[in-house]
């Protein structure tokens, strides 16, 4: 079953590069591994017929957000391994907490294989059907999102200004 094999491959890539995001020493490498993770998640979207979200995901995450991260790391000149690390006790505690959280999530999802049967057709992710819903039922939230993005842009410019300009 090629779909299932593709799912396993994409999951393996996503989990492995997500682990490398956390454990690689150089922040620049972390960003690059995060891009690989995002591409793998985008592949999952494509596997689920969500082609519109696949395109938006690639453009927004792998395109815009990751470029922002790369620029900030470049501007702050953080691409050397000078970061101080937490003590071994704290790292151990963090790992234990992560394992406990995974345990809780697995326990919470235990009955998930007994859900009602899936819908027979999966056409909802196509651009046409999603666009119909987005521009009829969710038109007001869609328009308000533009205000949110404008506010974020103004806020980022305000925060990014040098200190002496803020006083004047």
């Amino acid at each position: 079953m090629p779909t299932l094999n593709l799912f396993y491959f994409l999951s393996f890539v996503a989990v492995l590069s997500a682990l490398l995001v956390v454990f690689s020493k150089n922040p620049m490498h972390s960003v690059l591994y995060l891009i690989i993770t995002f591409f793998a998640i985008g592949g999952h979207y494509l596997l689920m017929n969500a082609e519109f979200l696949f395109v938006v995901h690639i453009i927004v995450y792998a395109g815009a957000i990751m470029v922002l991260f790369l620029y900030v790391i470049m501007l702050l000149n953080l691409n050397q391994e000078s970061e101080p690390h937490k003590s071994t006790v704290l790292k151990f505690a963090a790992t234990i907490c992560g394992g406990l959280l995974l345990l809780i999530l697995v326990a919470a999802f235990k009955g998930a294989d007994q859900l009602p049967a899936a819908a027979t057709e999966h056409t909802v992710g196509y651009v046409k059907s999603l666009g119909m819903v987005l521009f009829t039922e969710y038109l007001l939230p869609f328009e308000i999102t533009s205000v949110l993005l404008l506010a974020a842009m103004v806020g980022a410019v305000m925060l990014g200004k040098p200190e002496r300009l803020n006083k004047g």
Binding site: V22, P27, L101
Partner: peptide, 15 residues
């Protein structure tokens, strides 16, 4: 869980 682990594990704010 990997995301939570990273937040707890690292000290670099960007990570």
């Amino acid at each position: 869980t990997i995301g939570v682990l990273g937040v707890l594990y690292r000290r670099n704010a960007i990570i």
